[in-house]
C-alpha cells in the first residue's frame, strides 16, 4: 500500500512537470490523449474478468473491458485526427 502511494505521488509530480509545459494550442489533444491513457483501466478489467473464474466477476469485467477499450481506442484515434490537422505554414 505504501509502495503504491509512493509510485502514485512520484508519477503525479512527473505528470505535473511534463504537462505544465504543454502549450495552450495543444490543450484539447492533451485532454483527449490523456483521456485515452486513463483507459488503462482496461488492463485492470482484463485481469479481473479473465482470471477470477467467477461468473459475476467475469461479466462485470467483460463490460468494463468494452467501455475501457472505447475510451482507449477512441481517445487515441481522435487525438491523432486532431494532431494531423496542426500544420505549420508551408
Amino acid at each position: 500500500m505504501l509502495e503504491s502511494l509512493i509510485v502514485f505521488i512520484l508519477a503525479s509530480i512527473i505528470g505535473a512537470e511534463v504537462i505544465s509545459k504543454v502549450p495552450a494550442t495543444l490543450h484539447t489533444p492533451l485532454m483527449s490523449g490523456s483521456n485515452a491513457i486513463s483507459g488503462i483501466t482496461l488492463v485492470g478489467a482484463l485481469i479481473v474478468a479473465g482470471m477470477v473464474g467467477d461468473a459475476w466477476a467475469m461479466w462485470l469485467g467483460f463490460v468494463a473491458v468494452i467501455v475501457a477499450t472505447i475510451n482507449v481506442v477512441g481517445g487515441f484515434l481522435v487525438t491523432d485526427r486532431i494532431l494531423q490537422m496542426f500544420k505549420k505554414k508551408d
Binding site: M1, F8, A11, I14, G15, S34, G44
Partner: peptide
C-alpha cells in the same frame, strides 16, 4: 490501481489526474 495493486494503473492514473488538475 490501488485496488488491484497494479502499478500500470497507478502511474497512468496519476499522470492523467495531474494533467486534468493543471
Amino acid at each position: 490501481g490501488f485496488v488491484l495493486n497494479n502499478n500500470a494503473l497507478i502511474i497512468s492514473g496519476a499522470l492523467v489526474g495531474a494533467s486534468g488538475l493543471i
